[in-house]
Amino acid sequence: MKSRFSTTPFPDLFQAALLEFVGTTFFLILGLGGIQSAAALRYASGEPMGSSIEQTLYISTCMGLSLLVSAWMFYRVTGALFNPNISLALLIVGVIDPARFVMYCIAQMLGAIAASGIVVGLSNAPLAVNTALTDTTYAKGVFIEMFITAALVMAVLMLAAEKHEATPFAPIGIGLTLFAAHLWAVYQTGAAMNVARAFGPAVVTGFPDSGHWVYWIGDLLGSLLGAGFYALLKHYKYWRINPGQDASDHRQSPTDPVEKAKESLNNVLSNNSGESPREGSGSGTRASPDEQEGMGRALYPERRPGESMV
């Protein structure tokens, strides 16, 4: 049964939310599990849990690769959002409807709690995957989370929601965006950019950090910033600024530089001698104006607004 809040029958919507719960749990088990394993090794050996460069790289790799793998497996099933802040951005730009947004957010929050519980249950060390501010203020933490969340939102909207030649490979770019954002923010904020990722471990450990609200406010602002910038790009038809970047027709490639130089030289010599350029000189037969216009319409039709991954 459909409603004004959803274009999807409720049984299908419930099934999608259930699978989004499974996908979110899988993503965070891999990501948080890798971080917890490193923490458990340090805990067992008695080494200090410092924020070294090695640890930052390890955490960034765990989360980035986990999202890449999980998103690639689930993005044709549910859209592989795994993140209430991504869900909010897609709601704002009209990719998903309100009912799917609510169901997905519930599934993502529950998935994060389940993943955190599984990770700590399978570890011999205390859960060490909470996000927390380090050597920064609450205000700076909010803005760091805002910017890295906006970057992730833009990656999802431009690589997955927008349909183009590289859309099937969107999980690679999205995973690398998460990796790059972690390199910056792991030390300062823990690099949540996903309120569910911060919420799940906090629930399991009893909210040990008083600054947990930073991840709600900062990531919310990041969703708004990323979605707003994407809306501006769509409104001003960004594809007209640099057309052809996503074309796959080899005829849109640059012409042969050697032939181009020979054609230019021939034109110069012909102008100096007062003769017209020889027919057929240069890079060969060119398409007629009508053929070029038809080719342009085929390659660059007016694009529609971004469609959902789901």
Score class of each variant (00 low, 15 high):
10 F>I: 13
13 L>A: 13
15 Q>T: 13
20 E>L: 01
21 F>N: 01
22 V>I: 12
31 G>P: 03
32 L>E: 01
45 S>K: 15
58 Y>P: 01
64 G>H: 08
69 V>H: 04
77 V>W: 02
85 N>T: 10
88 L>H: 11
93 V>D: 09
95 V>T: 06
99 A>D: 11
102 V>Q: 07
106 I>C: 13
106 I>P: 00
107 A>P: 02
109 M>K: 02
126 P>M: 10
131 T>Y: 00
132 A>W: 04
145 E>G: 11
151 A>D: 12
152 L>G: 01
156 V>Q: 08
159 L>R: 13
163 K>E: 12
169 F>G: 14
170 A>Y: 10
174 I>G: 01
177 T>C: 15
180 A>R: 06
186 V>E: 00
191 A>M: 10
199 F>S: 07
209 D>W: 07
213 W>T: 05
218 G>R: 01
223 S>N: 01
237 K>L: 03
243 P>C: 14
243 P>A: 14
247 A>N: 05
248 S>G: 05
251 R>K: 10
253 S>G: 02
254 P>F: 09
255 T>A: 10
261 A>I: 06
269 L>Y: 06
269 L>V: 14
272 N>Y: 15
276 S>N: 08
281 S>P: 00
283 S>R: 13
285 T>D: 11
286 R>F: 06
296 G>D: 11
301 P>Q: 10
301 P>H: 10
301 P>F: 04
309 M>F: 09
310 V>A: 15
